[in-house]
Nucleic acid binder design. Structure first.
Lengths: 188, 188, 188, 188
DNA sequence: CATGAATGAGTCTTCATTCAT
DNA sequence: AATGAATGAAGACTCATTCAT
């Protein structure tokens, strides 16, 4: 983890730039002037643009993983766990939605493999949860990879849909709708 | 619609290039040599790289929209319609998954607005379907935008998950799992 | 051989630049403006600065090798051959002294190995000549590598000494002095 | 003379760096880490990179000059002097060959004038020797500059040829061969 | 004297776009 | 319509040098 990025303010500024303008349209000049430092200074902290980018993503995923793990501590019921999963993700997106855009973009871009590697720990937590749920008979017998990607896709797509519509994420509403669909589908 | 892209072979070649390498990493030189024409010739068919890119996306979305509309013709039951929606999308992704990657990437990138505009007709079909379903009492009272983006997110994320796992899309399996989750959620 | 360099005027211009300013102090901008073309055009003909540089050196060595071989055609006596070797080198330096500087610099720089490889054909001609001379008993029994590098060093150092002194090379004088020292040493 | 360079170990380390990597490819960072000091500290001892470089060269030439002068002390015969000149140079190159490479490179580079100035004292010694030899009738009537550059070129080129071949300089052999060629040429 | 983080001018290189043929 | 050589604006990256501590 690059120590430069533990300065949360700087971290968020860079994430916002990469998120709104995209990797290629974000120049090192822009980053430097956004941070109020000289361009060369960036290279003092990061080997190159790529490393800076991955640094931002890694930092963001770490925060997400830590938040989920701490929220899950001591949870018993499986349903509650899924609720926490949805809730944590929605809260995370509410605070770090620029990163959410980046994740999805890269998940469908040519850095997919790298991103999946970085998400490893996080996805493991979800996978374990789903396997446990299936063993308990609490949820359907589905490939856990499929189930988790379905949930992941729903949550992110829906949350970002709200954001692009309302410029902010109505967290409570989103959580309620998502829980409803996840647990019981769309049929009345 | 650019007539050059109605040559389905050329269309698919360019889509594959943009999909696997991304917009910025795909050079006009690569496109020219993939098509077996001179670089300058591209500019007789498209104003610039951007137009070429949008042309490819537009063409792809048109195909999708036509396929959905023709599949829906004469359908009565709402449940059947959702089934057709899922099925059409899965079939489309099976044939045009390079485009699927492009759509998702742009949906979370800085061309989101343009993409949503292009998807307008397609999304309208889905929206109408969902509103009809709610009026009939067949599905839950949800914001149709939310419902459609949830379904859309699930279908695409899940389908591309399969593809990245198995290099191909096991369509029947994907359709069955998706219908199950869409209609009844993940609870056993 | 890069066809761009067969234009002897351009070839000489670039060689002069690299020679007088050195590899690192010669910018691609300078080269472009010296040639009266755009910077990007250089990259149309050469992969990068390094290749351009090597292209110039290779072209120069080729000229040298061809000149020597054609001058040697039909020569019989060994002494005559050495005379021709000295004469050809002096004439070459008189016309291409910017390249002579480059060769020597690189011969003692970190491209020594590459340069020796490029000089391979040329050095072979000299080596063969010396071995023949030793077999005939015309010259002393010396390591041919040593003998040739001694002659080479003398000729170039001396010729460039004249040039830096008089801005031009007094060819006849240089040839006479060099033959004298090569054949009979400095003792009276 | 910069006192920092009288530490012979440091002096040799820096010379080796500049010699093997060249002026431009040697960074101040490399120099600092080779010396085990901080980059900024270099600037307490030398105004800039250029001065450091010239400092190294000057120090090296001083050593050479002192060695030659002390070796010549009390010598009578002219032939003996030439022998000492060759011998001293070969011994010097054996110990300081990284500097030998630097001298030759710069002699044919864009610092030629500066280098000749620094070599002034050394070249004067040789010039005086040759003029004396001509007056005595011991050697041929040649321009002393030509004679000295011929000898210089032969000795350095030959010595470095041996080094690049055997990774070390076989001093006795080199001296014998060089004396032979210098005094009597290459004819048998 | 020593440090090393910060600087920013300077360079190479890429690549979408143009245009004479 | 087609070509492909030429263009030049733009951007990543390097590194000698400075200066607050």
């Amino acid at each position: 983890m690059n120590p430069y990025l533990s300065d949360k303010e700087k971290f968020k500024k860079i994430a916002l730039l990469f998120s709104t303008r995209g990797y290629h349209n974000t120049t090192m000049d822009e980053i430097a002037s956004t941070l109020g430092i000289a361009k060369g200074t960036i290279y003092y902290h990061f080997k190159n643009k790529e490393e800076l980018y991955y640094g931002v993503i890694t930092e963001g995923i770490n925060i997400l993983t830590v938040q989920l793990q701490s929220a899950l501590t001591g949870t018993k019921s499986f349903e509650e766990k899924i609720r926490i999963l949805i809730s944590t993700q929605v809260d995370y997106i509410a605070e770090y939605y620029p990163l959410a855009y980046i994740y999805l973009r890269e998940l469908y871009g040519n850095r997919r493999e790298q991103l999946l590697n970085m998400l490893n720990n996080y996805l493991d937590v979800i996978n374990d949860m789903l396997i446990e749920g299936m063993n308990e008979g609490a949820i359907k017998q589905l490939d856990p990879g499929i189930a988790s990607s379905s949930i992941f896709g729903m949550v992110y797509t829906t949350a970002l849909h709200y954001i692009s519509l309302y410029k902010k994420l109505p967290s409570q509403l989103a959580k309620r709708n998502l829980e409803e669909i996840v647990f019981r589908g769309i049929l009345a």
